Computed example of a mutant assay.
Amino acid sequence: MLAYETVIAFVVASTLLSLAPGPDNIFVLMQSVLHGRRAGIVVTLGLCTGLLGHTLAVTLGVSAIFQVSTWAFTALKLIGAAYLIYLAWGAFKASAEELPLTEQPVLSRWSLYKRGILMSSTNPKLAIFFMAFLPQFADPDRGEISFQLMQLGGLFLLVGFVVMSLFALLSGTIKSWLRDSERGQSVINKLAGTVFLGLALKLLMTER
């Protein structure tokens, strides 16, 4: 089972990362603006469904790597840390002008749901992120790694669903804020970049 302090740290990190403007929450936001809040919720459900596949892949893959060799674990750790540092660099240099607040084509709810699934399940960057992010919060001394990773994946899905649903429900206000508040965007991006850097350092210090 996950420690209480681990759950708190994981939820805080997941919330900050989910709030940072990105393709997924921007897509949710725009569909909500164009087609109503329910459309945004449907897209969110699709995105979260796609994340289930990533959670399962990480659970199976990381559990195997933990058991295979120190070399494989070290390689995974270095790759994951490098990717997190890359994400931090992108977050720090992101600007308000880069947010793609453009209109999307009209889609049915079923199409929106499928689009959400495809956007998350076929995103290799998301797969790498999950591989680098989830294992940092698992502790081999607290039981089966695979069970802990499934718990963490479930928590991430819950946090992501809540945050993106809020984007959908507050679509009009959030769209105006994202478009007009360059300082607000900068603060969120810097927070996300700081979290990414912290996670990279934590991953580098993790021992098998």
Rank of each mutant, 00 (worst) to 15 (best):
Y113S: 07
L178Y: 15
G143P: 11
D139Y: 09
L134Q: 04
F130C: 01
F161P: 03
A75E: 12
F161S: 13
R179Y: 03
Y113F: 15
K202F: 08
M205S: 14
W110P: 07
A72H: 05
P135T: 07
I65Q: 01
M30E: 07
E98I: 04
G198D: 15
M1N: 10
S32M: 05
L201I: 15
S146C: 04
F161V: 08
T102S: 06
L101P: 03
L149T: 08
N123K: 01
N25P: 01
A192K: 13
V195Q: 14
F92E: 06
Q148P: 03
G143S: 11
E98W: 03
T194P: 03
G184W: 07
F66N: 10
I8L: 14
A20I: 03
V68G: 07
A72F: 10
F129R: 01
I145D: 09
Q151I: 09
S14D: 03
F161D: 07
R37N: 07
L157G: 02
L197R: 06
S171V: 01
S18Q: 07
I65W: 01
H54S: 00
P100C: 10
E103R: 14
F161A: 14
L60R: 02
A91G: 13
P105S: 08
T6I: 12
R208H: 15
L17E: 03
E144Q: 04
A127Q: 03
V58T: 12
F92M: 11
A132I: 07
V7A: 13
L60M: 06
K190P: 07
F133V: 05
G36Y: 03
L149K: 02
V43T: 11
E98M: 13
M164Y: 14
I85K: 09
A20K: 12
G184P: 05
S121C: 09
S95Y: 02
G53C: 04
E144V: 01
M164R: 11
S146Y: 06
A82P: 08
G90K: 15
A39S: 14
S186P: 02
I65M: 05
V12Q: 10
D139Q: 11
L170E: 09
P105E: 05
Y4R: 12
S32V: 05
V11W: 12
S146G: 08
V162Q: 09
L170T: 10
L112S: 02
L87A: 07
L169N: 01
F130S: 03
Y113A: 10
V62G: 07
I188Q: 14
S69T: 05
